[in-house]
Design a binder for these strands. Structure first.
Lengths: 233, 233
DNA sequence: AAAAGCCATCGTGTATGCAATCCTACTTCT
DNA sequence: AGAAGTAGGATTGCATACACGATGGCTTTT
């Protein structure tokens, strides 16, 4: 974020976020302020501010007087998050089809073609990297930093659930083919097609994951949860 | 927010936000922590946390070691914000066309018809209230709390720029007619048409405002601002 | 006299201490 | 014996205190 001189709060915010994304702090785990302060060698004050910052991004959940826990995403919430993500990405794809420069379109096409190699080599690692750049290009193509920020935030929030994304056999070629449809639509400036193709693509990613036992419901969510999700705050 | 017992930080957050939205704190104004603490009769600690919270929503901007100021929205940023809003609302309209219940569709239709009275009476106040509910209904129709949260946040952030929204003569009938197209599309479950109609509608609102001298560039933003917006962080 | 460097003052960042609240475990009553 | 009330411990919320960095005015030098 800010470059000048990293304040302890910023450092902590990144460190704790990384720890959560790495799985060192599992969903539902209590984040004791004093414990974190000792662990990172600072006082409670910057820890508190870092936790508030993370709470704003949805990575953790703070309840007044009750402490902070790593956000445990219920299957319903995961569904909602992926759905919002799909819509945002589809919107970015639509806008990309409308307003990408020729240079950007070529760059997208080139990346897509380069990723074909990773597919034939069945190199999931390489493909994941290319995939990241692919979606980033389309974010940028929207020309709207607010949308980009939202999409990046969502993507980051969903990161832990995308780990084994390209593990399932046959997923690489399929993903690449879906990318191809998005690329074709954007290159031919077909906004509706770009929207549809991207929505299809991201929704499939969702399908691949919503059945996995990813999110263990936190030990506190015992109430009769009628709502499929509860992104209140 | 949380219902239990409002913590000082939460109270402050709301109070300061209201003060900003009311215009008591103008864009670019410095928000001195001690000053706010004295003004609200608390210590600096909850003030700091409240400011952090507001910074996360984009209402204020904090720079390390340099203090916090009320976010001054440049015309370019306003454009970006309205654009993102339009896309989000269009997305919600699209989803509403797909997944609204019959009850919801009737409710939407009823509200729309009721708003016709406000149009013939040229009652801008009443129409503004109905307009708010109209858009809220369509948010809810998306069935996606994440999207709703984003849309509500954006709408709140843009609130100060929508004050005189229905002042210009002839705006009411036009807005109502645009609403009609959205309603028709949703009632007939035409997703693409709902998207297009809502995008058109909100974009026109944007057009009506982007030429007004709304945002006075803060006294500090004297640098050569090449970027149309800078929604970093 | 203008520009550059220095010093004082202010404000934020961080640490520490105190008080209120919540959770847990134990006691006690039915 | 089970359940409710209660006391103790633990943790968060808030206040106060200290330290570092930033900003503005002043002195000094060319």
């Amino acid at each position: 974020m800010t470059a000048s001189m990293p304040t302890r709060t910023e450092t902590l915010s990144s460190s704790i976020a990384d720890a959560i994304l790495r799985g060192e702090f599992k969903p539902g785990a209590r984040l004791d302020e004093q414990m974190l302060a000792d662990q990172f060698g600072v006082s409670r004050t910057p820890v508190r501010e870092a936790l508030r910052q993370l709470a704003a991004t949805g990575l953790v959940e703070s309840r007044p007087r009750r402490g902070t826990v790593v956000a445990s995403v219920t299957p319903g919430q995961l569904d909602t998050l992926f759905g919002a993500m799909a819509e945002l990405e589809a919107t970015c794809a639509r806008l990309s089809a409308l307003s990408m420069s020729q240079v950007e379109r070529r760059r997208l096409q080139a990346l897509h073609e380069a990723m074909a190699d990773a597919v034939t080599a069945d190199d999931g690692e390489a493909y994941a990297g290319g995939n990241q750049r692919f979606h980033s290009l389309i974010y940028e193509g929207s020309r709207n930093s607010v949308l980009i920020e939202m999409a990046v935030g969502l993507r980051r929030r969903l990161e832990p659930f995308r780990r084994a994304q390209f593990r399932s056999p046959g997923r690489l070629p399929r993903s690449h083919q879906e990318h191809g449809q998005v690329v074709d639509a954007i290159l031919s400036a077909d906004a509706a097609a770009a929207h549809a193709a991207m929505l299809h693509h991201v929704s499939l990613v969702e399908d691949a994951f919503e059945r996995l036992p990813l999110s263990v419901a936190g030990p506190e969510s015992a109430g009769p949860d009628a709502d499929p999700d509860a992104s209140s705050r």
